[in-house]
């Protein structure tokens, strides 16, 4: 009854509100509040610095989005980030000459991890939540085993620059962090892959209904494997930026996988597949990061920040479920 009413008299304002991605709306509200509390965030420089810090989470969310769109989960992202940072310091050993081949090896490791995740899910039929949970444990153990439990070396300066370097005196924007350039390139690539290629449509089809997709001629297994590879490669990218931004530590990746999933969901992605957008994932991760920043600025006691995070998570998903039903 109410649904009919809404259809017959949809005020322009209501339609506009429905059209906005929840994530975008949440982000604008949160960022506006931050900027009121801390005016420097209103300046271009402040925003770019914010983006620089949020870049790893955005990249992780974009990678996770492919797996979610295909109907699965990747819980191994966080420990792959840890492996990337610890492994990078082990391989490069502080020597700038080693940086480029080190990065190559790290991407190869990522490729391997993604392939194993994908093959375990498609060939051994282990649900992705369990397959990647096992991978989480193993990778974390492997990273610590490799380094002996503590960081064993430094990342060279040119490696660090990828996450740390900020170009000064740039026209128009004033400053330009290198990681923001990488971020823009990565997001563009992800958006193109998901929204403008046959592969992207196949991912969404597989997530929506694998049997129907198969009947329609979609290579379901290969598509599944590929989404895990994409997710793993994005985790390596995020690891390189995080290691670059802040240096080596053993706890660097902890919990990032859940943040990435939460970011996708806040951005309107449907768990278990079928509906996903890169804009949403970006907006979702920006919202989440803005929330962390805001709670920091407000000086709320640490534990209550978790509570607020939980509330927002449920509210975002409940509201999008509600909008789905009414649409």
């Amino acid at each position: 009854m109410s649904a009919t009413a809404a259809h017959t008299a949809p005020s322009a304002a209501l339609r506009f509100v429905r059209g906005i991605n929840v994530g975008v709306a949440i982000f604008l509200v949160l960022y506006g509040t931050i900027a009121v509390l801390q005016p420097s965030y209103f300046e271009v420089e402040g925003f770019l610095n914010f983006l620089r810090r949020a870049a790893p989470l955005i990249i992780l969310a974009c990678g996770q989005l492919f797996v979610i769109a295909g109907g699965g989960f990747d819980l191994s992202m966080g420990s792959l980030v840890t492996l990337t940072v610890l492994g990078g310091s082990m391989l490069a050993g502080g020597n700038p000459e080693n940086t480029w081949w080190t990065i190559g090896v790290l991407y190869l490791i990522g490729l391997g991890v993604g392939l194993v995740n994908g093959l375990v899910v498609t060939l051994l039929k282990v649900p992705s939540i369990i397959a990647t949970l096992g991978m989480l444990l193993s990778l974390n153990g492997a990273a610590l085993m490799w380094s002996g439990g503590a960081p064993r070396g430094y990342l060279p300066e040119n490696f660090r620059a990828l996450g740390r370097l900020v170009y000064r005196e740039v026209p128009v924007t004033g400053i330009m962090p290198l990681s923001v350039i990488i971020l823009i390139g990565f997001v563009a690539l992800a958006a193109w892959l998901l929204h403008a290629t046959v592969f992207g449509r196949q991912v969404l089809a597989v997530g929506d209904n694998p049997r129907a997709a198969e009947l329609a001629g979609v290579p379901v297994g290969a598509t599944r494997v590929l989404v895990f590879v994409i997710s793993a490669l994005s985790a390596v990218t995020a690891g390189i930026l995080l290691g670059g931004f802040a240096g080596v530590s053993t706890a660097v990746g902890q919990g990032l996988e859940l943040q990435a999933i939460a970011a996708c969901v806040i951005g309107g992605a449907q768990l278990l597949g079928g509906r996903a957008s890169v804009t949403g994932a970006v907006a979702g991760s920006l919202s989440l990061f803005a929330l962390f920043t805001l709670l920091n600025l407000m000086g709320l006691p640490q534990p209550l920040r978790e509570t607020v995070q939980g509330l927002i998570l449920i509210a975002a998903v409940a509201s999008s479920a509600w909008r789905m039903r009414r649409a």
């Binding site: 801390q38 610095n49 790893p56 802040a246 530590s249 706890a251 902890q254 920043t293 920091n296 600025l297």
Partner: peptide, 23 residues
């Protein structure tokens, strides 16, 4: 001026300190 928890995480530490320097 503040007592903040970093979880022993480098990235979070750096972000918090940047915010304080800004503020």
């Amino acid at each position: 001026v503040g007592a903040e928890f970093t979880n022993g995480d480098n990235a979070k530490t750096k972000a918090i300190v940047e915010d304080y320097i800004n503020r």
